[in-house]
Design a protein around this nucleic acid. Structure first.
Length: 414
RNA sequence: GUGGAUGUAGUUCAACAGUAGAACGCCAGGUUGUGGACCUGGAGGUCGCGGGGGCAGCACCCGUCUUCCACCCCA
C-alpha cells in the first residue's frame, strides 16, 4: 500500500491549517460586518443540477459517479450554481436581497499545476436580487476591506463593464458575432500575461480578419468608463476605499462567460502570480433554476493565492506559528500524576488552553522538548519540592525563565 | 487532454554498471528536576511500481504511477 494523498489533494498540517483558519476567520468577520450570512451546500448534487452549467470543459472536469442508490451525482464544482439552486429552491423563504458568503471546497479533476489543485477552497460573497449600483460598490468594498483586514496595504482594484464588450456586438462596423465574442474576451483577458501582439494573434487565429481584430482591440483599448462604472467608482469611494486603489481598465476581461455588467479584479503589489480576487455582476445566471431572472453581483477570493501572497509579504501574525495550547502541564512521576491532572483542570477551568502531558514515565526533558517543539508558551512543573510548599513552577519557554508561585497566583503569571 | 522534467533513509540530496552514503531530523547516553548548544553512540533504505536486455542495475530500455513545471482551461 502506498501511503500518499490523492493527486491534486492536500493535507494541511497544524501550522498550515492554523494559517488557513486565521484567513477564513478574518474573511468571515468582514463579510458578516456587512450583513452577509453564511451558506453551506452539500458536496454532492444531482448530476443534472451541475451538468451543462460550466460549458464543455467544465463537464469534462467534473467529478461524477453513481451513488449506492444508483443516483447520478456530481461533486461541487463551484459555489455559484449551488447558490442559484438554493435561491430557486427557497425563493420564498430567503430575504431579498439575499446576501450570503460561502467558504467551501470545490472539486475539479483538472491536471495539477502551480497553485492548481483538484480540491480547493473558494470564498464567495454575493448579493442576489439587487441590481443597484450600491450592491456593485458594496462587493468591491467588502473585497477591499477584507484585504486590508488581512494586512494588505498596497493593492489595485481594476474595474470594467462588460457592456464595453457587448457594445461591440451592437457596432455594425465590426460585425462581430455573439459566437465570436467569448473567444475575443478570453484573448483580451490574457493581455497582461502575453502582451498585445499575442492577443492579436489569438483573436486572428479565432477566425477574425487582422484589420477587424485591430479595430476591435483599439475600440476596447480607448473605451471611456461607462455611466454605470462612473457611478460605481463614486460609491466605492463613499464606502471608504481609497480612490487611488481603484482603476478603470477597459482591457480587463475575465474569462467567465456569464458576467453581464461590472467586472473587477484585485492585484496585490509585490505578488505577481496573479489576481487574488475577482468578481462581477451576473444578472442572467441565477435564473437558470428559477422561473425568472434574478440579478446578482459578487466576488470570490482565490484562497490559495491569498495565502501565498500573505506568505510572501509576511503578513501572518506570529500567533499562527504558535500552538493554541497555552500551558503544558508536565507529569513529574506516576505518583504525582494526580496533582498534574488537577492542575490542568484548574487552568482549563479558567479558560486557558491547557494540555496535560500524557506519559508520566517520560523524562522531564522530553516533556519540555515536546512543549517547545509544539510552540507552547508555558510549561508547568509539579514535583516534590513544589508540593511541599504547595506551589507550582511555571516556565516560560520563550524567554527561558521560570518562577515558582502559589497556585492562586498562577493566572497572573500566564 | 498535450508537452517537458522528476522519484534513493523521516527530510534535503549524493553514489563511474561492480558491497547504497552525507547532512539535518529521530532515539539513547554524557546530565535519574528542566527545551533550542555541544560530545559519544545507535536505529532507520522493497533505490516509486512492473517488466526487459545484461555475468552484474540505483544507473540502460519499455510501460505505469507520483510529484513538479508549462500549454489548454480555470480559481
Amino acid at each position: 500500500m502506498n501511503i500518499q494523498t490523492l493527486k491534486g489533494f492536500r493535507d494541511f498540517l497544524p501550522a498550515a491549517a492554523r494559517k488557513r483558519q486565521y484567513v477564513i476567520n478574518t474573511l468571515k468577520s468582514v463579510f458578516e460586518s456587512y450583513g452577509f450570512e453564511p451558506l453551506e451546500t452539500p458536496t454532492l448534487e444531482y448530476e443534472e443540477i451541475l451538468a451543462g452549467k460550466y460549458g464543455q470543459e467544465g463537464d469534462k472536469l467534473m467529478y461524477k459517479f453513481k451513488d449506492l442508490g444508483e443516483r447520478n451525482v456530481a461533486m461541487r464544482y463551484d459555489q455559484t450554481v449551488p447558490l442559484a439552486r438554493v435561491v430557486a429552491q427557497y425563493e420564498n423563504e430567503l430575504p431579498m436581497p439575499f446576501k450570503r458568503y460561502q467558504i467551501q471546497n470545490v472539486f475539479r479533476a483538472d491536471n495539477t499545476q502551480k497553485g492548481r489543485f483538484r480540491e480547493f477552497l473558494q470564498c464567495d460573497a454575493d448579493i442576489v436580487g439587487s441590481s443597484s449600483p450600491l450592491s456593485d460598490a458594496e462587493v468591491i468594498a467588502v473585497a477591499a476591506k477584507s484585504l486590508e483586514k488581512l494586512g494588505f496595504e498596497k493593492f489595485k482594484i481594476l474595474i470594467n463593464d462588460r457592456a464595453v464588450f457587448s457594445n461591440l456586438l451592437a457596432d455594425k462596423r465590426q460585425s462581430i458575432t455573439e459566437k465570436e465574442l467569448p473567444a475575443v474576451i478570453r484573448a483580451i483577458d490574457k493581455l497582461k500575461k502575453i502582451g498585445k501582439d499575442k492577443v492579436m494573434e489569438e483573436i486572428i487565429a479565432g477566425g477574425i480578419a487582422p484589420e477587424r481584430a485591430m479595430f476591435i482591440y483599439q475600440t476596447i483599448e480607448f473605451q471611456k468608463p461607462t455611466k454605470q462604472i462612473r457611478e460605481i467608482l463614486k460609491l466605492v469611494q463613499q464606502y471608504g476605499i481609497d480612490a487611488l486603489k481603484v482603476k478603470f481598465d477597459p482591457t480587463l476581461a475575465r474569462g467567465l462567460d456569464y458576467y453581464t455588467g461590472l467586472i473587477f479584479e484585485i492585484e496585490v503589489e509585490g505578488y505577481s502570480v496573479g489576481s487574488v480576487a475577482g468578481g462581477g455582476r451576473f444578472d442572467n445566471l441565477i435564473g437558470m433554476f428559477a422561473d425568472k431572472q434574478i440579478p446578482a453581483v459578487g466576488f470570490a477570493f482565490g484562497f490559495d493565492r491569498l495565502i501565498e501572497a500573505m506568505e510572501e509579504l509576511n503578513l501572518f501574525p506570529d500567533l499562527t506559528k504558535v500552538s493554541t495550547t497555552r500551558v503544558l502541564v508536565t507529569i513529574f512521576s506516576g505518583e504525582l500524576m494526580d496533582k498534574s491532572i488537577e492542575l490542568a483542570n484548574y487552568i482549563r477551568s479558567n479558560n486557558l488552553n491547557c494540555e496535560l502531558y500524557d506519559n508520566g514515565d517520560d523524562k522531564l526533558e522530553k516533556q519540555i522538548k515536546y512543549a517547545d517543539k509544539k510552540g507552547i508558551m508555558y510549561a508547568a512543573i509539579i514535583g516534590p519540592e513544589e508540593i511541599e510548599k504547595d506551589m507550582v513552577t511555571i516556565k516560560n519557554l520563550r524567554i527561558r525563565d521560570q518562577q515558582t508561585v502559589k497556585r492562586e497566583d498562577l493566572l497572573k503569571v500566564i
